[in-house]
Amino acid sequence: MKITDRHLDLTPWILATVLVAAIVHLVSVLLMPHLAPKDALARLSQAAADSNAGLLLLSSAQPNAQVLPFQDPTLVEGVCFFDLSKGLLHLRGNVEPGEFLGVSFHGSAGRVFHAMTDRSAIKGKIDVVLGDASQISELESEDSDDAPPPEIRVTAPSAVGFVLIRSFIKRPSDRDRAEQQVRAIQCESFEPPAE
């Protein structure tokens, strides 16, 4: 009987401990994207001397010289950083017909919020404007009713992040072409047109 009593005394403590553990677990998992010190944006910024300089070509994945984990060594990758508090991001460029080009839009912790390939190019061009919800709705309010907007508009869920541009190296001699394709994409920050 004594043992049962002691067990009963301990039960609330055990329950409280488990509850605290569960709360700490959930909170720490949910906070991790905001707190992790070495997330993708931090690693890419470290690799970039000047993150405002438009598109930056990443070095191909090699031992001891790989910016991000799980980079494909057969891709040429370029990165553009964005900070929507300083204006919208305009990403555009010509796409070589028939060649793979991947464009993915990431929040600072790496999450993909939009992605496209060369198949989404219109008349051989990729033309995307990235903004937060209010910037995009401001752009939309200025659209005329007759003509569709010339660009694809993407709403970003966070103010800062980055865009990865990927081109495929079909064989070792193809690297220059793939680099030129990535460099053909321009990134510019611009202010919304004044009212």
């Binding site: 070495k38 997330d39 931090a42 690693r43 984990p69 799980f70 839009f105 939009h114 992605a115 990865l164």
Partner: peptide, 29 residues
């Protein structure tokens, strides 16, 4: 992991590892 409906654990794992996954429209690993 290549889209917005990523689960919270995967999101936290990406933040820690620093990986930038392929967008689902681009491909899959």
């Amino acid at each position: 992991n290549g889209g917005l409906n990523i689960d919270p654990y995967a999101r936290a794992i990406l933040a820690r590892s620093g990986e930038a996954p392929l967008g689902r429209e681009e491909g899959v690993a």
